[in-house]
């Protein structure tokens, strides 16, 4: 029951940041909000595993933590240079 309550409170935080993601004035606000949502979802996936009683699926949150970092840096690099490659 406790994990369910925590899952719901995380959803509330998700909603708050989603407002910033949609309403954010500059692109940097949106990128920051997307990155924070990624972190929150990483936590939510692992807590969901505990709620279902099968916490073996934490691998997904590891993958997501890696992907979230790479994606954010890729978006920022594209915004900086206008392309992803070196040439």
């Amino acid at each position: 029951m406790m994990f369910l309550a925590i899952l719901f409170s995380i959803s509330v935080c998700f909603l708050l940041i989603l407002i910033r993601l949609i309403a954010g004035k500059t692109t940097y606000d949106r990128i920051l909000a997307a990155n924070s949502i990624g972190t929150i979802v990483v936590l939510a996936i692992s807590i969901h595993g505990f709620y279902m009683g099968r916490p073996e699926f934490i691998d997904i949150s590891i993958v997501y933590a890696l992907i979230n970092f790479i994606g954010t840096v890729a978006v920022l690099k594209l915004f900086d240079k206008g392309k992803l490659g070196d040439k």
Binding site: I31, T39, V42
Partner: peptide, 27 residues
């Protein structure tokens, strides 16, 4: 599971300042 959780924590701990700094620097 505990080891995996600790790994997630360390990873977020290491990458968070990088994204923060890159965002601030770009802005």
């Amino acid at each position: 599971i505990t080891a995996k959780l600790i790994f997630i924590g360390i990873f977020i701990f290491f990458t968070s300042p990088i994204t923060g700094h890159v965002t601030a620097n770009l802005a």
